[in-house]
Design a protein around this nucleic acid. Structure first.
Ligand SMILES: [Mn+2]
Ligand SMILES: [Mn+2]
Ligand SMILES: [Mn+2]
Ligand SMILES: [Mn+2]
Lengths: 227, 227
DNA sequence: GGCAAATGTTAGGCTTAACGAACAATAATG
DNA sequence: CATTATTGTTCGTTAAGCCTAACATTTGCC
């Protein structure tokens, strides 16, 4: 009933499934061919073909011109790939001393080359971590994602004191900027105000007690919980 | 003068170059299309085509029906790949606790996915090792292989006391057999006799003081130096 | 509701790496 | 040394993944 191991899929197929799963992890916007092409850096026609093949293999559900969803089997593979990716990122930071802004691209390639055995050993070596360096939850081997919580900073109530749970790892450039500002998972801060039409959120960093203005892309990339 | 980085070559090209280099590391037999096809598990026609392309790129010297040799540039890439492979094997054993018979296939895939940065970090983490788990020398970053020494056990003078320097990692099955017998790099033993037409070499293992008979394939896979 | 813009699909090509079949060259053997 | 066996090359084909260009569908706007 659970089909082939995830290692039997091509790198492209593995990335497609992982992307579909990840795209719906933190938001409910439907996954479209355009979104996927954009994020994968390929043309829409390439994705359209690729999805058609995944649909034929029963890994995604997709009617022409419709949005794309994972089947149960597709989701299993997707979660396995997310687990690989996040464990590898954790390894690169914890064991090899990479910066958190340097790990994404390396993991993006490695995730296709490692065996399940290696991932198991890595997990043990790292002490079964539950969060990657960006605060993203690491799914367990049987596919249960540790439930994420929190809201985007852009949507957090003004006046509240919060802690950062995760920061989207999509843009390494932005991660370097956050490092400079002193923003990372577990950082505490107070949301001072949202200025709606300027799309600016002002926060006060605890500790150094500095005020920082963040634009929309930045405050969308940061997820927080009340403390 | 040193052309593209080794990461720009396809996995197939990387494996071809590494194989050519490795084949001449411990013996002087010329590298032929047939030998390569055999070891890579592909058909001769595939190798013939592949070598032609590498020759066009100036990485190997090859006249039709002749044997295959690396150019200086080809050798640089080959050594870089051998370094990757052996550092990865060392990592798998030293850090992740793999057995020495389990690492070869995993490294064979990983070597194509790691960046130069990762290899550098790994080397530092491992304390700049000079030998891989099979006793094979790990080339330095600038391509100088630590010079190998020793002879095949099948060619070692009877009566001599020797230490194992390396054991060919080509056959994991054989490695497991050696583990059972207590044979590994640095094991000391005495060569008792060679029985030529039976192709059997008898050795006495120091410590346990056991006598062992080895066939030709086994005594060709083990390299020793006098101690 | 109709039309233009945005989005998605299809068709046709390219490249890489594999294969088998047919052929060419070299090596081994009587 | 002639013939056969072995080894290597060429060529046509296939399957992935990508591309562009042409076409189809859906969406959003007047
Ligand atoms: Mn990837
Ligand atoms: Mn991450
Ligand atoms: Mn390899
Ligand atoms: Mn080895």
């Amino acid at each position: 009933m659970d089909g082939m191991p995830v290692s039997d899929l091509s790198s492209a197929a593995q990335d497609y499934l992982k992307l579909i799963w990840s795209a719906t992890e933190w938001s409910a916007t439907p996954v479209t061919v355009g979104v996927m092409a954009e994020r994968l850096g390929v043309r829409p026609s390439t994705v359209s073909d690729g999805i058609k093949k995944l649909a034929r293999q029963g890994l995604v559900a997709h009617a022409p011109y419709g949005s794309i969803e994972l089947t149960d089997e597709g989701r299993e593979h997707a979660v396995a790939m997310v687990r690989r990716h996040r464990l590898l990122e954790t390894f690169l930071v914890d064991v090899l001393g990479y910066g958190w802004d340097e790990v994404h691209d390396e993991a993006e390639v490695l995730e296709h080359a490692v065996s399940d055995k290696l991932i198991g050993r890595l997990d043990r070596k790292l002490g079964h971590p539950t969060r990657d360096p960006h605060g993203d939850p690491i799914p367990t081997p049987d596919g249960k994602p540790h439930l994420p919580e929190g809201t985007q900073l852009s949507a957090a109530a003004a006046g509240g004191t919060v802690a950062i749970t995760r920061i989207s790892d999509a843009d390494p450039q932005m991660l370097r900027y956050f490092t400079q500002l002193g923003l990372a998972p577990d950082t505490r801060l107070t949301v001072r105000e949202h200025r709606p039409y300027a799309d600016v959120t002002t926060i006060r960093l605890h500790g150094p007690d500095r005020d920082i203005d963040l634009g929309a892309s930045a405050s969308d990339a940061i997820w927080v919980v009340a403390v």
